[in-house]
């Protein structure tokens, strides 16, 4: 990968972090599922996608949506329920979607988007244009039957589907070890003959390399693949969920920050100067400020919108 793609990745991760930070400070933030800490997974996976591919994800969708290239202003508008969001403010939290931009989108039922993504992959397979579907989901989804049903059919039908498990080690408060028996979650794919690997989800270059390898495999007709990325979430499960982890654990997680990690690597490699890094942050902050300003100017939907597009 080139230095410019690394810098793009850095900027993309900072954008997600800063946008969520701005969102969290707003009085109208409301219920949100934040991606902070897990940006490297979204950004690394999105870097491997082509224009006609479709990305689907769980309700933890802010970093995936931004990484896929959705306009930050429209994303912010959707998140705070404004009519200028891609879903006209109706989907909002957990249901961001913009298929025309390759972001088929979020679905906030744990494991609920897996078979949907396989269906999208089936439709893409029929097009024969080598496009693929990618579905991001949390470790929580790995205990659900939906994953196994989906992997079985995806393997049988050789669907162009990459399953990305963004394993942040917790289902709300339940540690992964207390909920899931397998040693590695990528082991779940093995019985179906699905190509799988587990990588460090806090290193965007590692995620991207694995995602490129597996998307190539899927794109070239290899059938489905499974990528597990071990990550850390920096906020509690949602803005309304209590934090259950201790200060020591949270501090240790902060040491793994994917943004700091890439920035330090690029500085030490000489691919980035401190000055350029600072300028990059300022550019991103300006973009986030503009996104917030755009969202603020966007109206709330009229009440009649509650009954539109139902049948």
């Amino acid at each position: 990968m080139t230095a410019s793609s690394d810098i793009d990745a850095l900027a993309a991760m900072i954008l997600a972090r800063e946008l969520e930070s701005a969102l969290s400070k707003r009085a109208d933030c409301g219920f949100q599922l934040l991606s902070s800490g897990q940006e490297a997974v979204a950004v690394g996976v999105a870097a491997a996608l082509l224009a006609h591919d479709q990305l689907l994800c769980s309700g933890r969708s802010i970093a995936p949506a931004l990484a896929r290239g959705l306009d930050p202003g429209r994303v912010m508008a959707e998140l705070i329920g404004r009519a200028s969001g891609p879903c006209l403010g109706r989907g909002g939290r957990g249901h961001l979607s913009q298929p025309s931009a390759g972001f088929f989108g979020a679905h906030a039922v744990v494991a609920g988007n897996l078979s949907i993504a396989a269906g999208v992959a089936l439709a893409l397979q029929a097009r024969r244009d080598r496009s693929i579907a990618v579905c991001m989901f949390g470790d929580g989804a790995c205990g659900a039957g939906a994953l196994h049903e989906t992997m079985n059919i995806a393997a049988l039908w050789q669907l162009p589907l990459l399953l990305v498990c963004d394993n942040n080690l917790y289902s709300v408060s339940t540690p992964r070890a207390a909920a899931l028996a397998p040693q590695r979650l990528s082991d779940l794919a093995a019985p179906f003959g699905i190509e799988a690997c587990t990588v460090d989800g806090m290193d965007v270059r590692v995620v991207r390399e694995a995602a490129v390898e597996l998307t190539d495999y899927v794109r070239n007709g290899g059938g489905p693949a499974f990528l597990e990325c071990i990550s850390r979430r920096y906020a509690s499960h949602s803005t309304s969920a209590r934090e259950t982890r201790g200060q020591q654990e949270l501090a240790a997680d902060r040491e793994l920050d994917p943004i700091t990690r890439l920035e330090n690597a690029l500085l030490s490699e000489g691919a980035l100067s401190a000055q350029t890094a600072q300028a990059l942050r300022e550019q991103v902050r300006a973009k986030v400020a503009a996104a917030c300003a755009f969202a603020d100017l966007s109206p709330l939907p009229v009440p009649e919108e509650a009954f539109a597009d139902v049948v």
Partner: peptide, 28 residues
């Protein structure tokens, strides 16, 4: 067989695939 597809016994995935495929351009 590509257009008249037998599925495993997995109603949730069958309907989920039908939904996703329809949402992405097929009629199912």
């Amino acid at each position: 067989p590509a257009r008249v597809r037998d599925t495993p016994v997995a109603e949730a995935a069958m309907v989920g695939l039908g939904v996703g495929a329809a949402a992405a351009g097929l009629r199912t």
